[in-house]
Design a protein around this nucleic acid. Structure first.
Lengths: 245, 245
DNA sequence: CTCAAATGTCTATTGATCTAGACAAGTGTA
DNA sequence: TACACTTGTCTAGATCAATAGACATTTGAG
């Protein structure tokens, strides 16, 4: 007898999307590795207690993501399974961490601005409200797939040429070095999860309705003085965060 | 002119739920602290570019959660704002971490079993597939609100009386001590986000359709030998994870 | 080849979601 | 009191989500 996997109705989240989420996770956990393919639609429909058409909608969404490929007569094959694992440790560096998981890493500058620090930004950077900060907005990709969008803030007094330096060097670490800061460490990371908004959906090229992992992180120099406050949104269906302590 | 906040249609996630998620986050970020109340329904409807009735559905969901309270003629007031922050560090201990954020902490044992380690459990604990492990299933609450559900695995060879010890002592740390293990550290935590399934919805008493943060963590003794592998699901609208490095 | 099993396509129906508009009822201020 | 502003309630219609059933098409195994 099939195991009954529970989905809920009238939640504001369509059944096909809940089921797509569950199948994606099962693929990523290796639950279907033995066969290399997803169970037949009728079996899934039985497991989730829904109509076969509903399962088809879920599989269509996963096919749209490029995660599975259906072949008439044979079944639905798994094309790709891993989520990229993003390590968070005291020495978190974006491009290093992804390492061998992706061949090509790119961070693109969407825009920059100089503005006055308000509430959370000022608190996190340990500066006074109203002090000038430089904002960099970036999107990062691995092998052409967008993985995260970020807004990062730097005290303008200490890093006046952050935007230009990043634009030339394409690296926060190098831009810090250009200001005479050779080393920095991650001191704090907060993580929440929510549904992506439209702006994130388009920038991350997400199959709509997806979930994002939002992190608020603080990096500091070796004296403990904050040098960067960053808000990033990771596509939750492409990334997992790995905390190393 | 109102800022346009983007929501997406035909995503499998109803507009009212996306909007509820965004308002919940805005409340938690303190965006509405000045007034102590949510903007009027007509204003929100304008910002999100939807009908006022859709906003009303979102606010009704938040009222159901106890987050806001609407008063005819006055507006919609914020009743409660903070998410509980769950710290993850090398010395992660559940009850200690929540500290002053909640007055009363409880972990209830839902059940336990002895089973044979399979794939991820065996790998994480560094034992051979088929070796016996003890499984504890628990739900943890703060001030009566369920915060997380967990399944934890311990090598039965080393911790044969884990279930009984936990049942008596109501603490993993003390149950370890009863087996002669005085100290342990968190070595790895992986985090993914997804929609809650029906089982989690009921155990966490979640307002349906919610998001969970799922963590897979490994604790080890001071020699680096794994002693616990744990899978936990945190209610994403009540918790944030705070990584201290 | 034959057949079972799997995906693909179609129609029809029901309920949930979203929009639109109108008006009632409560609150606070001038 | 009069008024502006806010939430509460109702109706009606359009679109999306899910069910149900029937049948076509493709694949692989015997």
């Amino acid at each position: 007898m099939a195991i009954r996997k529970v989905v809920e109705r009238q939640t504001g989240v369509a059944l096909w999307r809940q089921i797509a989420d569950r199948i994606r996770l099962a693929i990523s956990n290796g639950d279907y590795d033995a066969a290399g393919m997803v169970p037949p639609e009728t079996v899934l429909a039985g497991e989730f207690g829904v109509n076969r058409h509903t399962v088809r909608s879920a599989l269509a969404a996963l096919a749209e993501e490029g995660l599975v490929r259906a072949v008439q007569g044979r079944g639905t094959m798994i094309e790709r399974k891993e989520r990229v694992s993003y390590p968070i440790s005291r020495r978190t560096r974006f491009s290093q961490g992804l390492g061998r998981q992706v061949k090509e890493i790119g961070t693109r500058l969407l825009g920059h601005a100089e503005l006055r620090a308000s509430g959370e930004i000022a608190t996190s950077l340990g500066i006074a409200p109203g002090d000038p900060v430089i904002e960099l907005r970036t999107v990062s990709s691995g092998d052409g797939r967008p993985l995260s969008v970020s807004a990062s803030y730097y005290p303008a007094a200490r890093f006046p040429r952050m935007a230009e330096a990043f634009e030339q060097l394409h690296s926060v670490t190098k831009a810090f070095a250009a200001h005479g800061l050779d080393d920095y460490v991650r001191v704090s990371t907060e993580i929440v999860a929510r549904h992506a908004d439209g702006d994130e959906l388009s920038k991350l090229k997400l199959s709509a309705g997806a979930i994002v992992l939002e992190t608020h992180s603080i990096n500091a120099d070796l004296d403990g003085k904050p040098v960067e406050y960053s808000r990033s949104c990771f596509a939750a269906d492409r990334m997992k965060l790995k905390i190393e302590t």
